[in-house]
Amino acid sequence: MKYEEFNDNEYLEQLRASGTNVIVGCLDDVINWGRSNSLWPLTFATSCCGIEFMAVGAARYDFSRFGFEVTRASPRQADFIMVAGTIVHKMAPVLKRLYDQMAEPKYVIAVGGCAISGGPFKNSYHVVQGVDSIIPVDVYIPGCPPRPEALLYGMIQLQRKVKVERFLGGKNHKEKENKE
C-alpha cells in the first residue's frame, strides 16, 4: 500500500462532532487527556502475541513513552486488556471473568489473528472464533503475530478512541441502552 493511501481511521474524531456544553466538554477533555495518557495494561498473554507484547514493553519499542508503563497483574487496577493470543473454550470463561473484574473505564484490544477470528486455528474444535463473541473489543490489531510497531499503533488508536469519549457531557460508550 502506498503511504498516501493509508487512511488513519479518520472518522474517529467525527464521533464527537455533534457538540457539547463548553464547561462539561472541557472537563471531559481533561479527564480524557488523563485517561488516554495513562492506560495501564493487564499482564495477560496466552500465546505467541504475548511475546511480542513483552517486546513492546522492552527497551527497543518501549511503550512507557506513551504512558502504558505500569503493567498491572491484578485486573482491578488495569485499564485495558490486551488479548494477546488464542482464546480456547476452557479459557473463555476465565477471560470473561477477568474482564468483569476490571474497573470502569475498561478497554479491550484484540491482538493477532487468533483473538480476532480464530486465525489459523479457526477450524479447531476448541478455539473461540474471535473474542468479540465474549467481550466487547475496542481495537483490533491483525497479524500473526503483529509486529511491535503494529501493537504500538493499535494502542495509540485506543488512545485516540478514549479521547473522543464522553464522561460527563453525554453517554459513555460502554453503557448499554436499556431496551424495554
Binding site: T46, S47, G85, T86, V88, K90, M91, V94, F121, N123, S124, Y125, H126, V127
Partner: peptide
Amino acid sequence: GYIHRGIEKL
C-alpha cells in the same frame, strides 16, 4: 488445557 488449540486434529 487453557490454550489447547487442537493442532493435532487440525
